[in-house]
């Protein structure tokens, strides 16, 4: 394994080895992930599907350093997450873009300010430069100047999800994690959002791991992973 690593020209964006995770204590203990190993290369778009409750979101939050690793090893963007402290997990999160199921925009900020919260994480940029960055990304996801000044409350579901994508990309992530980004969208909008996501990620050479059980978008994937009952099924092409 170690020898393998030395010959690798580019280190993987994500590499997971025999990861297990469970919730609850004692008799209430429930295993949600069992012996998962996977690898995602930079620039790769990977889709993760499976029935609900099979542990997809848990796996995603573990990769996103939002949960403490219990068993196994998780390496994300060159940082080992098992046993990592609060500070190093925060450092990793900075380089990961997150798109959540419920978009999770800040209700009190306009679309533009929401995206700028992402851009604000970039070091050594002036306020104006960060705002321009935010505007560029919002235009890239297809929002006009009027919509940029609106609160999430006044935007449609598709527009909110586009803002969430823009926010995730505004911090120049090396890895994008998306949890059912199309769940709240109709099929046409969902398709547009996913195509956009893939295009923008490609341009940034950013790896993408997308959890979905929307069969209509499976074809955007370079690779498809399937999960069932906490286990990763053998790869299908």
């Amino acid at each position: 394994m170690a020898a393998d690593h030395d010959f690798d020209p580019v280190p993987p964006a994500v590499s997971i080895d025999t990861l297990s995770h469970s919730f609850g204590q004692g008799s209430m203990r429930r295993q949600v992930l069992e012996n998962i190993s996977l690898r995602i290369n930079p620039g790769e778009v990977v889709l993760l599907t499976g029935p609900s409750g099979c542990g997809k979101t848990t796996l995603l939050t573990l990769i996103g350093a939002l949960r403490t690793v219990q068993q196994g090893s998780v390496n994300v963007l060159g940082q080992r997450l098992n046993g990592a402290g609060r500070r190093s997990r925060q450092q990793v999160r900075r380089r990961i873009g997150m798109i959540f199921q419920g978009h999770n925009l800040l209700r009190c900020l306009t679309a533009e300010q929401n995206v700028q919260m992402g851009a604000d994480l970039l070091p050594d940029l002036t306020y104006r430069a960060r705002r321009n960055e935010a505007r560029t990304w919002l235009r890239a996801v297809g929002l006009d100047d009027h919509q940029m000044g609106q609160l999430p409350h006044d935007l449609s579901g598709g527009q909110k999800q586009r803002v969430a994508i823009a926010r995730a990309l505004a911090a120049h992530p090396r890895l994008l994690l998306a949890d059912e980004p199309t769940a709240a969208l109709d099929s046409r909008t969902g398709r547009e959002v996913v195509d956009l996501l893939k295009k923008l990620a490609r341009e940034q050479a950013c790896a993408v791991l997308m959890v979905t059980h929307d069969p209509r978008i499976l074809d955007v994937a370079d690779r498809l992973l399937q999960m069932e009952d906490g286990c990763l099924l053998p790869a299908v092409q």
Binding site: G64, L66, Q90, Q91, V92, R93, R94, R95, I96, M98, F100, N104, L106, R107, M117, G118, L121, R167, A171
Partner: peptide, 10 residues
């Protein structure tokens, strides 16, 4: 919302 900001790396 604070948790979201933490997830973003704040």
């Amino acid at each position: 919302e604070y948790a979201t900001l933490m997830a973003m790396g704040y």
